[in-house]
């Protein structure tokens, strides 16, 4: 894997083909658990872990899997990995496991995991595949973190609430009261807030891209249309 390849993969995952903002894949957990930064980042990292492992597991066996059954095999591998992650969270991060609830096992159905297995890991060697899984996962996590931060500040006036679920009781003091004595704006915490927030983030990204393409107006604007819109 050359440096330019790595750069390409990273740029695709984090910005150009960002799963949350451009491919619009995996929106179900994105919208459901992004009510606080901690929840959002936790599920994002769990998804990232699954994507690294699934891409790394699928790449080496890609030439042994007959074409007709590749989807069932990929799903099987992903489901196994998700369940393993679920067991581990249940055992060692119980509080968080309760909060994230059904969305941990639902990582199986997250389109982005299968999409990367199908479109990248089934065509590339192990290392780039694992790296792609990591970058796509981190891209998703970054969007989740921004969305979670927006919703938490607007909705509750805090940041990092629930951090004690990760680091134990003493971490309760780490919660940042961004707006003291805040009344709370429930809309941001409830599901509609997720849609509005995501819409604003996508708008911001498109605006940044537009501005960047105007700056280099001599060159044509880069193609940033979503390659698939499903969720």
């Amino acid at each position: 894997m050359t440096l330019t390849e790595m750069k390409d993969i990273a740029w695709n995952g984090l910005w150009k083909q960002n799963p949350g903002l451009v491919q619009l894949l995996g929106l179900c957990p994105l919208l459901a658990v992004s009510s606080t930064v901690i929840n959002a980042v936790s599920l994002g990292l769990a998804t990232t872990l699954v994507m690294i492992l699934s891409n790394a597991a699928i790449a080496p066996v890609r030439s042994y899997v007959p074409n007709e059954i590749r989807i069932p095999v990929f799903v099987l591998i992903i489901a196994v990995l998700v369940t393993v992650v679920q067991y581990l969270m249940n055992a060692y991060l119980y509080g968080l496991y309760i909060v994230l609830g059904i969305f941990v096992p639902l990582i199986v159905t997250n389109c982005i995991v299968l999409a990367r297995a199908e479109s990248f890991a089934s065509k590339n060697p192990v290392l780039p595949s694992a790296f792609d899984g990591m970058m796509m996962g981190l891209g998703l996590t970054a969007v989740l973190a921004v969305l979670g931060g927006m919703r938490e500040i607007v909705g509750k006036g805090t940041l990092l609430s629930g951090i004690d679920l990760l680091f134990g009781e003493q971490a309760k003091a780490w919660v940042i009261p961004v707006i003291p004595d805040y009344h709370g704006f429930l809309l941001a915490i409830l599901p509609p807030g997720a849609f509005i927030g995501l819409g604003l983030i996508i708008a911001a990204k498109n605006w940044l891209d537009l501005r960047a393409s105007k700056k280099i107006s001599s060159q044509p604007a880069p193609e940033t249309l979503p390659e698939a819109v499903q969720g």
Binding site: V61, V65, I69, V80, T83
Partner: peptide, 18 residues
């Protein structure tokens, strides 16, 4: 056979984690 092979590996991984 191929599918069964993957299923066996998957089941083994699952049951050992369990």
């Amino acid at each position: 056979v191929n599918l069964v092979f993957f299923a066996i590996i998957g089941t083994a991984a699952l049951s050992s984690t369990y």
